[in-house]
Simulated scan of single mutants.
Amino acid sequence: MNNWNPSQFQVPVEEGKSRFHDFDLPNELLHAVADLGFKYCTPIQAEVLGATLQGRDAIGKAQTGTGKTAAFLVATIKQLLETPAPDERYLGEPRALVIAPTRELAMQIHKDAEALTKHTKLHTVMVVGGMDYEKQRQQLQQEYVDILVATPGRLLDYCERRDIHLDLVETMVIDEADRMLDMGFIPQVRRIIRSTPRPGDRQTLLFSATFSEDVLRLGEQWTWNPLKVEIEPDSVATDTVDQKVWIVSTEEKYKILYNLINRHNLERVIVFTNRRDQTRRLAEKLRKDKIRADMLSGDVPQKKRIRTLEDFRAGKLQVLVATDVAGRGIHIDGISHVVNYHLPEDPEDYVHRIGRTGRAGTTGTSVSFACEDDSFLIPTLEELLGDRLSCTRPPEELF
């Protein structure tokens, strides 16, 4: 492990692109970056790393799929490796804290953090609701915690029982702040932040898919002299995803979907619906027709959700039928198609949905069904995307 050196990770200089090499990262961190196959930084990584590696606070606007998780983790890990840990430490006293609104997102961040710290001695722990309380508590007691990834409710439980102390937090990351607001978590997040050192004494990074007045106000309260980074979603939405809108009647939708999956032998597809009951009905129908499908929605218990995502990742499922709340936490490579079985009522959700495909340098296809019930939503979508969507009838063979 120790005999690895950066010369084994050759990345040619390219006009207008930043490489991870350009940021003077510690060898063991660069080694993990090399293992993950990251060569050039995404726009948000380049901008965020430039500032945060010097210890500055940042407020970033970025959709999922822009690489923001790696941006804040790389900055955090470099900081932890280069600043010696305090002499006097207690168990359950993390040096870096990442808060995320949902278990799925927290699990994804934890997985990425473990991959990026694998050549270091840093220890990452996750505490989230819906999973074994005692088991997570034991992990806090086993060894010093360097990076703690948490959902707000469960974290407060441990703080109140004095299993976790936040007075030594050097770096604090608040991910998907807009969703924290939507889900009513802000009072909890406020209490968490009050337990950490003051802004200026800790580094704070806040990310959000949208910059509403509320998000910006929170950002101002929680950070000190922050850099503001905005990565526009239009490039995320349109460059790597071939977007199709098919005009269909409500009755035709299922047949078209079934034929699309079957005729093209699609192996990994996410189908979005707007409501839980629609999700359940559609997944049952697909299963009845011998398609390996399962569903993700707010009323699926946590353990089952994790198993379903793992099966989908492992290729045991072809089709995942999901609602928006469930869909935003899905970060799985190799999803070839996203189908909007129903158009989303909130245009921002459209960008999130289609961002599940065409990730990490690959291209993907999104197919949206527009029928008599929801085609009136198309102009609002076009306004957000800043582009016309081509609306056609589906290819003949799918009928």
Results as ranks from 00 to 15, higher is better:
Leu97Thr: 04
Phe9Pro: 01
His21Asp: 06
Glu251Phe: 13
Arg388Glu: 14
Val269Glu: 10
Arg103His: 01
Asn3Pro: 01
Ala150Asn: 05
Leu227Gln: 06
Thr64Tyr: 13
Ala113Leu: 06
Gly92Tyr: 10
Glu104Arg: 09
Pro12Glu: 15
Gly153Val: 05
Leu29Met: 10
Asp87Cys: 02
Met107Thr: 03
Thr66Cys: 10
Pro226His: 11
Arg313Met: 07
Ser297Phe: 15
His352Met: 09
Arg359Ile: 04
Leu97Gln: 06
Lys304Tyr: 00
Tyr350Asp: 05
Glu397Gly: 00
Asp387Pro: 00
Gly329Glu: 05
Thr76Asn: 04
Gly358Thr: 11
Gln8Leu: 14
Arg217Pro: 02
Phe376Tyr: 15
Thr42Pro: 07
Pro199Asp: 07
Gly130Leu: 09
Thr223Gln: 04
Leu216Thr: 00
Arg95Trp: 12
Lys285Thr: 02
Ser212Gly: 05
Pro226Ala: 07
Arg95Val: 03
Phe399Ile: 03
Val338Glu: 11
Arg359Ser: 07
Asn27Asp: 04
Ile193Lys: 04
Gly355Asp: 07
Arg353Glu: 04
Thr171Tyr: 05
Gly355Cys: 09
Asn340Leu: 14
Glu345Met: 14
Ile335Pro: 02
Asn274Ala: 11
Ser390Asp: 11
Asp234Ile: 06
Gln141Gly: 03
Lys228Leu: 13
Arg162Asn: 11
Val128Arg: 02
Glu47Cys: 03
Glu267Tyr: 04
Arg190Leu: 04
Glu372Leu: 11
Thr223Ile: 06
Ile354Val: 15
Thr102Gly: 08
Thr365Asp: 00
Thr363Val: 12
Leu148Gly: 05
Gln141Trp: 12
Val325Ala: 10
Glu382Tyr: 07
Leu156Cys: 01
Ser212Asn: 03
Ile109Lys: 05
Asn5Ser: 12
Ala150Trp: 07
Ala70Gly: 10
Ser297Cys: 15
Leu166His: 06
Val338Leu: 13
Lys255Glu: 10
Arg328Tyr: 11
Gln302Trp: 04
Gly184Asn: 10
Val215Leu: 07
Thr151Asn: 11
Ile77Asp: 03
Arg191Val: 02
Leu81Val: 02
Pro152Cys: 09
Glu230Ala: 09
Gln188Met: 08
Thr365Arg: 01
Ile247Met: 12
Lys135Val: 03
Arg194Gly: 10
Asn2Gly: 11
Thr273Tyr: 10
Arg280His: 14
Ile354Gly: 06
Val189Asp: 02
Gln108Thr: 07
Glu220Pro: 01
Thr362Gly: 04
Gln203Met: 09
Gly37Ile: 05
Asp132Glu: 12
Gly386Pro: 10
Gly334Asn: 14
